[in-house]
Simulated assay, not measured.
Amino acid sequence: MQIEQARIDDADAVASVLQEAAQWLSNTGRPLWIPSEVNHERVLRDIEAGVFFAARNGDDVIGAMRFELEDLLFWPEIEAGTSAFVHKLAVRRSWAGNGVSTALLTFARDRARGLECRHLRLDCVADRQALRAIYERFGFVLHSYVQKGARSFARYELAVTD
């Protein structure tokens, strides 16, 4: 498996990974992303901005995530340049349980460290216990909860400096 910055010609594949994850979550009664958040145009715009990374098996995109250096929606109080943020981490269902999410998180942690950030941060819907367990096993620590609309989100952080 290789992880690298997504290319323009990856937009369909990255959007497909995100849409597949969104559909699976919806089918299991846990809707998360609305179609406009994971459509081709939005993904292409984010790839052009350099924030999407793709996990590959050969030529196939098997996972993806957004890696950003600010998050004004969920972490507005964080000083610029001190943290990196992971969003929209998704894995093809056929690759679930094969370490793709761990590889993406490892890549994000190492990239944040290389950029001299102190923390890697992320958020997830607070009632998603299985997802939260993945983050906690990786080493993320619960920071706090925030309310956005009708949903409560758990905010996690991971210290990436020694």
Rank of each mutant, 00 (worst) to 15 (best):
M1C: 11
E4W: 13
A6N: 08
R7F: 12
I8C: 15
I8G: 14
A11V: 09
S16C: 09
S16R: 09
V17T: 10
L18N: 02
E20M: 06
A21H: 02
A21T: 04
Q23S: 05
Q23V: 09
N27S: 11
N27A: 11
N27R: 10
T28P: 01
G29I: 12
G29A: 12
P31A: 06
W33A: 07
I34S: 14
I34A: 15
I34H: 15
P35K: 03
S36G: 08
E37L: 09
V43C: 06
R45Y: 14
I47A: 02
V51K: 08
F52E: 01
F52M: 07
R56D: 12
N57T: 12
D59G: 14
D59Y: 12
D60C: 12
G63C: 02
M65W: 04
F67A: 01
E68H: 05
E68N: 08
L72E: 13
L73K: 05
F74C: 07
W75D: 00
P76W: 03
I78L: 03
E79Q: 12
E79W: 05
G81E: 09
S83W: 01
F85S: 05
F85K: 01
F85C: 08
A90H: 00
V91N: 01
R93P: 03
R93W: 06
N98H: 13
G99F: 00
L104I: 05
L104E: 03
T106V: 02
T106E: 07
F107C: 09
F107D: 06
A108E: 05
A108P: 00
E116R: 15
C117S: 05
R118M: 12
R118I: 07
L122K: 08
V125W: 11
V125M: 14
A126S: 14
A126Q: 10
A126D: 12
Q129F: 14
A130E: 14
A133V: 10
I134Y: 00
E136H: 10
R137H: 13
F140T: 00
V141I: 13
S144L: 03
V146W: 08
V146N: 09
K148G: 02
R155T: 00
E157V: 06
L158N: 00
